[in-house]
Design a protein around this nucleic acid. Structure first.
Lengths: 120, 120
DNA sequence: AAGGGTGTATTATTAATGCTAGTACACAGA
DNA sequence: TCTGTGTACTAGCATTAATAATACACCCTT
């Protein structure tokens, strides 16, 4: 279901968090769908259960999943999460554009960085 | 000339690198202008000289400055550096847009994240 | 009631890295 | 020669990611 990139400099638990975030936001994991158990995922990814637990704890803290003791971890509904995530993305875009303009990048050059993802 | 944000989770030497990168790209530090000496900047920022040296070493490796032993570190010309930096920014933008679209963000919502930086 | 699967908590240990500390050496210029 | 400069090296500290091992409580099925 997910994979880990050991060449990535970010901590493993952060990678796990991000992967599940996107899976939930995209709807690949639906509301109330069960995530892999801490122990199972640890075996599957050859990681320590504590690392998975830390990732799940973070996902729960951010509202992406909820926990039922003795049963497992389950995906939350994604509507509000998507809105929040969209704002984060817009914030990132603004930061990058701010820097870009400060070094003299033109509007045209900025748009060239985006154009290939536009339908037109 | 520059400042360090201790609340920033990134390493200090990376912050120093980024600050000088932008100062050179913006032309605030002109070609062949001398940067603060390793020891002076270390005192000014209350850091260890080794930390500054690491930052300067990185800046040299990336072509932003050149070193004259016994004299100091000096800014390189920024023309080629700017072109390279613009490509990096475009790459970042594409990555963000790619993710944004994958979670169902619309073109309109994407543009709202940029609009305030456009002249129009 | 028993057992297996689940999350949770705790403590200890290892490994990597950022940063500091201290020292030493070589070069440039006055 | 003296001062300021970059460079190199070793050592150590602090933080954090990650592992290891263990224990406990909950849920559900048998």
């Amino acid at each position: 279901m997910i994979f880990i990139d050991l060449k990535d400099s970010r901590p493993i638990y952060e990678q796990v968090v991000e992967r599940f975030k996107l899976l939930i936001l995209k709807g690949v994991i639906e509301r109330d769908e069960k995530l892999p158990s801490v122990r199972n995922l640890a075996v599957e990814l050859s990681l320590n259960p504590n690392t998975i637990q830390r990732a799940y704890g973070e996902l729960e803290r951010q509202g992406y999943i909820y926990t039922v003791k003795g049963k497992g971890n389950f995906a939350s509904g994604s509507e509000k999460l998507i809105d929040r995530y969209k704002e984060e993305i817009q914030k990132q875009l603004r930061e990058i554009c701010k820097t870009a303009i400060s070094i003299g990048m033109t509007e045209e050059e900025l748009m060239n960085g985006i154009r290939e993802w536009r339908k037109i």
